[in-house]
Design a protein around this nucleic acid. Sequence first.
DNA 1: ATTGTATATCGTAAATATACGATACATTTT
DNA 2: AAAATGTATCGTATATTTACGATATACAAT
Lengths: 110, 110
Amino acid sequence: MAAVRTEEFNKKEIELAAFAKVIAHPARVAILKEIAKREECICGEIVGVLPLAQSTVSQHLKELLNAGLIIGTVDGVKSCYCINWKTFEKFEKTFTEFFNRTKVQNSNCC
Amino acid sequence: MAAVRTEEFNKKEIELAAFAKVIAHPARVAILKEIAKREECICGEIVGVLPLAQSTVSQHLKELLNAGLIIGTVDGVKSCYCINWKTFEKFEKTFTEFFNRTKVQNSNCC
DNA sequence: ATTGTATATCGTAAATATACGATACATTTT
DNA sequence: AAAATGTATCGTATATTTACGATATACAAT
């Protein structure tokens, strides 16, 4: 028994947790910031900025791709990434809603 | 080599990633919501609502405590938890800032 | 004092995540 | 055609996370 028992929770909870997981690593946060800063960014530039091996960065990029947070295009030998703002905003909305709705449930506590 | 190389990233990135990790599990999201809904909540009530063993829930509660997101008080045999709104708002602010600052860096991309 | 109850902790198994080097692959350059 | 370049993938080691049952602990009730 070690797999997360995702089946048992409600959709919103699962989605928020999944989104959180995507940005739950400093490398992926740094990658997102770097791509946003440059507007678009080739893989090599990201590797140059991060204290990680090329293969590790590539792995993190893949996870961001899977999550739909970035879009990758091939430019000759190079891979070019940019933020998928549509998904980015979906993430933002999901987090914002979680915080707002959780707050609303409360009135006065400790 | 498997430990996250946290030392190498900047503070903001590490903090955001760490905060994200705390809510990167549906059980912990569900626990937070449940406690917020009831304003305060004893452990047994949470266990009753979640599809997880008591010891597992206790483990998740401990992580939320460590993160400072909840406060636990002993009430006889029972343990009573409530949201630590101060930390909660710190989390909210951190996420909001990340989304806002990342967006600002961009103008027009794909 | 004994029993029951609520919760935390321990021990442990299995899954997942992280990291790296080596290698494969495709494109570009020579 | 051969060499160089940039990136993805493979294989693998290790750390961390998740989950559970069993047990310990502390208080309450009998």
